[in-house]
């Protein structure tokens, strides 16, 4: 099966990539950040940051995507904090995705809390990039009528 082209909607757009809490395993975050860059995005890697700082960066950079990475299991408490901080900072119409060691039941909970997509361990880069391109396009479509 041919890999669908995913470059278009992401080229020139900004992604904020962050690690949650104190979990320090950066491999997943950096690998996916490289894939974002390959797809033409500009990546702002903030590493470990408090939720408010992640939200402020997303706002200042006019990001279309916030990518959160975790391995330790801290997603259950940390992700809702980031979602709330984005809300509070007035960051709307930005895709929020989580990647890492997230069991299926937790993924459902995160989606309920306002995350657009969860990519558990083993997700392929193509799956991730295709889904993200769709999400970014959906949000762009939502923004345009308001901006028109």
């Amino acid at each position: 099966m041919a890999v669908p082209p995913v470059v278009g909607p992401l080229t020139g757009r900004k992604a904020v990539v962050a690690k949650l809490g104190m979990d320090a395993h950066w491999r997943g975050a950096i690998v996916v950040a490289n894939a974002f860059r390959d797809a033409g995005m500009e990546v702002v890697y903030v590493g470990h940051a408090e939720p408010a700082m992640i939200a402020r960066t997303a706002l200042d950079e006019d990001a279309v995507l916030v990518g959160l990475s975790t391995l330790s299991g801290n997603h259950i408490s940390e992700v809702p904090r980031v979602v709330a901080a984005l809300e509070e900072a007035g960051v709307h119409d930005v895709a929020v995705v989580v990647g890492g060691t997230v069991p299926p039941a937790d993924a459902a909970k995160l989606k309920d809390s306002g995350v657009d997509e969860v990519f558990p361990t083993g997700s392929s880069l193509d799956t991730i990039m295709t889904r993200i391109a769709d999400l970014v396009e959906e949000y762009a479509a939502r923004r345009e009528p308001a901006e028109a």
Binding site: G21, M22, D23, E50, L71, G73, N74, S77
Partner: peptide, 19 residues
């Protein structure tokens, strides 16, 4: 604990006892 932060540190809360 690996990086010598107390469990009472604000940023530590979600990772206390994990991993």
């Amino acid at each position: 604990s690996l990086r010598a932060f107390g469990s009472d540190d604000e940023q530590a809360a979600s990772d206390v006892g994990r991993g």
